[in-house]
Design a protein around this nucleic acid. Sequence first.
DNA 1: CGAGTTTGACCTGCGC
DNA 2: GCGCAGGTCAAACTCG
Length: 489
Amino acid sequence: MEEHSQDGREIAFLHSGDFPQRDSTSKDHQPNECSVEQHHKSSIKEVDFFPVKSQPYDLGHMRATTVGSSGLNDELVLMNSRTSSDDGDDKTKTQISRLRLELERLHEENHKLKHLLNEISESYNDLQSRVLLARPTQVEGLQQHEDILQVISSKALEDRKPTDMNNEVPGTTLKRRSPDDVDDRDLHRGSPKTPRLEQNKSTNHDEQQNHHDQLPFRKARVSVRARCDATTVNDGCQWRKYGQKMAKGNPCPRAYYRCTMAVGCPVRKQVQRCAEDTTILTTTYEGNHNHPLPPSATAMAATTSAAAAMLLSGSTTSNLQQTLSTPSAMSSSSSLYQNFPYTSTIATLSATAPFPTITLDLTNPPRPLQPPPPPPHFMSQYGPGPYLTNANQTRSINDNYQQLLLPNLSGPQVPPRDMVETVRAAIATDPNFTAALAAAISNIIGGGNDNINNNNNNNENNKVDAKSGGSSNGDSPPLPQSCTTFSTT
DNA sequence: CGAGTTTGACCTGCGC
DNA sequence: GCGCAGGTCAAACTCG
């Protein structure tokens, strides 16, 4: 709720009175949205001068509005009364010149306000277009959300590797990375002994194009680094270990898990301890859940989804940078910084990894209420880095999360919000992510509503929760559940 | 007995 | 073409 409010405040302030009003009569109105709306209203009050600005800027209007509301009307009355007398000519001329000066001043002020309004409108339009890109229409629900994100990620990959991607034969390089691909293998697998090669051959052609279309988003990964003594983190989902490998350069084995909450769920995660510090556990999620999630898992889903949205939208750098260059965007991002006290959490993108990966590093102790560090460099900073958090940790990791929670959220835990907050906080530390942030915010606020609505059927799931660990909370409001995953690099 | 884990073998992509 | 490393499979094993 808090975070939504903050988001709402941010957006509302950013776009001032021009921000489209949410439908307050919405049937799916949620408490969160309530607060958001209230913030909208309050924020509009704050900038209530805009409606005045938006009025026609003709002189007559100015006269009518400004003169009537100031002591000038008295002067006008005086002027009128005095114009009838001859000895008042000089004084009248003086007053007229004063009035003209005053009008000029107001006119100039009007110009400034108009210019400001234009900038805000521009910023709003820009942001809105990206919001539309980042979120689906409410009708289609999660699947459409994923589809759109796939499109975005496709763009992202094209941006990153324009020639390679264009020249690539569908289903060659990327073929095996798709979780759906794995699912297809599972579905088409006959007897366990059937050679995989033959199976691949039999299903290859039809699926390859399909896979190719869907691959980019699935390749997006979200990794979380956090200190955890447990072997894995409790993210609310049920996982089954299907393999373990010794990774090169790391004495600690890498474990492979598959989501078992639903048959054929393509989500997988890798868990590996850091070689330098074995107390640090890196969890990497990949794929989208194809089933409802319990609240505790929803937290992770929201986190990863937001991170993935940021990651993917952040890859489309051109628009983002353009947006960043606008003054309103700048002020918005700085406001965001102020709203994210835990700037020690760092999010980084990795373009060198085989997949676009966002990493949240939760291993640094939070530094609440500290001003954010000066914005570093831009997207060129790609490299292995910290990630989003996994929600899934056992107690120890949940404790970690607790430390990251906002102080005023000390009541019943609301993991999803906190985690998304954490994610945004992490990303907010780097201006490179500001644009991605906008997408995420829209996802959480505007799009978040959509997701909430879209995932109403998933709420059913929320009853299930069951064995998920400490972060589970039945009172937690449902969150966006598009579940991108984490991955460790 | 079913669900989950372990572990060696296998498959695939990639770099040389 | 070969070797390496990452990822996956599935039989064997463990546990409740």
